[in-house]
Design a protein around this nucleic acid. Structure first.
Lengths: 158, 158
DNA sequence: CTGCTTATCTTGAACGAGTCAAGGAAAGTG
DNA sequence: CACTTTCCTTGACTCGTTCAAGATAAGCAG
C-alpha cells in the first residue's frame, strides 16, 4: 500500500516534471486524487487532497486543476447542470455516459478513431478539433429503480 | 412588420395553448425572443423581452425559460464554460458547432437519424435516450484571424 | 549547502448566474 | 363578475468559482 502510494506519487511527480511546472506536493496530491476518483468535482478533490495535506487551501486545488488541465495532464468535463469534473484519462478522445437521475458518469471508448472522431454534415466553415459526445440516460441502478424523469431533470440532472 | 410581429405572437401563443400553461405576455415574449435570437443566454433574453415589456422581472424570464423547456417548447444547451443558452429548434436532435475563440454557436443537422442518433460501443447497462454532440473548433472569422488557442481556452471558451 | 528569483500557495474578500420565498397580480373557469 | 390557482414581482440569498495581496517554497546559480 505504501509502495503503491509512493509509486503513484512518483508517477504523478514524473508527469509534472515532464512539463515546465514545479513539482509541489499540492499538485502531486491533486493529480493523485483525480486518478483515484475519476470524474470527481473540485469539492471532492479538495476533500481527498486534505486527507494527506490537511492544510491545502481550496484555491491551491482550483489553481492546480486549472494548470494541470492547461498542460494536458487532466481533462475537465462539465455535463449540463454539473459543476466541473476532472479525469486523468487524456488524449484518447473517449466519451461519457451520464445518468440523468444519479449523475453517475461512465467512460465510453471512442471506436471511431482519434479526435475529432466525427465530422458534422456541414461544418459551416469551422476548423473543428474535437467532437465531444455525451450520452444521456439512466444508469443500470436508476433504470432498475424505475427512476421517473420529469422535464425538470434537464435542469437538475447531474 | 407589425403583421409579422403579430403572427409571431400568435404563433407563440398557439404553442403555449397546446400545453396546459397559461398564455401570459411574459411567456409569449420569451418564446419570441428565443426564436429571434437562437442560442442566446438568459441575460440577452431579458434584454430582448424588456424591449416590449420593460417591466419584466429577471425571475419571470428564468421561470419562463425553465417552464417552456420542461414542456418541450425550448431546448437548453450549456456548452462547457458557457452559461445556459436556449433555442426554439426542438425535437430534431440537431447538434452544435462551438467556436472556442468567440463562442459563436451554429446548428448542425444530425444526418444519422433521430435521438439518440449514436450508440456507444459499450453502454455499461445504461438506458440511453440522447447522444449530445458538440463540435469544438474555430469559426471562419476566428480561424481567419488566426486566433491562438491556449490550454486556458478550455476554461474561458464560450 | 546557501541565497536568490519567481512560481506557487494561503487568506479572505468578491463575483455572477441562478435560486428561494412571500406576497400581489392576472389568466382561466363557472 | 367573482373565484381559484397559476404566475409574476421584489429582494434576499446560495454556491461554485475567481480575484488580489502577501507569505512560502521550488528550482537554480554560485
Amino acid at each position: 500500500m505504501n509502495g503503491t502510494k509512493l509509486d503513484h506519487d512518483e508517477d504523478a511527480a514524473a508527469a509534472l516534471r515532464q512539463t515546465s511546472l514545479r513539482v509541489t506536493k499540492q499538485r502531486v496530491a491533486v493529480l493523485e486524487a483525480v486518478r483515484d476518483h475519476p470524474h470527481t468535482d473540485t469539492e471532492t478533490v479538495i476533500r481527498s487532497v486534505r486527507e494527506s495535506l490537511p492544510a491545502v487551501s481550496h484555491q491551491a486545488v482550483y489553481d492546480s486543476l486549472h494548470t494541470l488541465t492547461e498542460v494536458g495532464l487532466l481533462r475537465c468535463i462539465k455535463p449540463s447542470g454539473s459543476v466541473a469534473r476532472y479525469e486523468r484519462r487524456i488524449g484518447d478522445n473517449h466519451h461519457h455516459l451520464v445518468c440523468r437521475s444519479c449523475s453517475l458518469i461512465v467512460d465510453v471508448d471512442c471506436t471511431i478513431g482519434q479526435a475529432p472522431c466525427l465530422t458534422p454534415s456541414h461544418d459551416a466553415g469551422f476548423v473543428i478539433d474535437q467532437a465531444e459526445v455525451t450520452f444521456w440516460g439512466l444508469c443500470p441502478d436508476c433504470a432498475a429503480a424505475g427512476a421517473q424523469l420529469t422535464g425538470d431533470d434537464q435542469f437538475s440532472a447531474v
